[in-house]
Amino acid sequence: MEVVLAIITGILYAAGIYMMMRRSIVKLIIGVILFSNGVNLLIFLSGRLKKGKPPLIPESSDVFIEAYTDPIPQALILTAIVISFGLQAFAIVLVKRAYKVLHTDDLDQLNTTDEDS
């Protein structure tokens, strides 16, 4: 499973980067989302996988009795997911606004800061 997930991470990275290099601004956002999914998976994998062993201390005990999944990557990813929601929302609105103002979603036409171009 780990090997398969590693390959999937690579595919997500590749897909994300490829979408980021497109000229359409919507594709750019989709690329960023795919990419951040890839990053989450990478962090998750770096903590190693443990099937069905969530980091919850059993009710009857004060400490862990058996092995458990690494909680730190989970805390990191949880944070990342919520933050990327904010990022995506902002990016989407930015795109929308850029499109409204400039009437283009071609990134190649957004390469100048001048108002009149």
Partner: peptide, 13 residues
């Protein structure tokens, strides 16, 4: 380019 990068990431993992 993206596929190369993706492969590299997989290898690193």
């Amino acid at each position: 380019l993206s596929l190369t990068f993706g492969t590299l990431v997989s290898m690193i993992i």
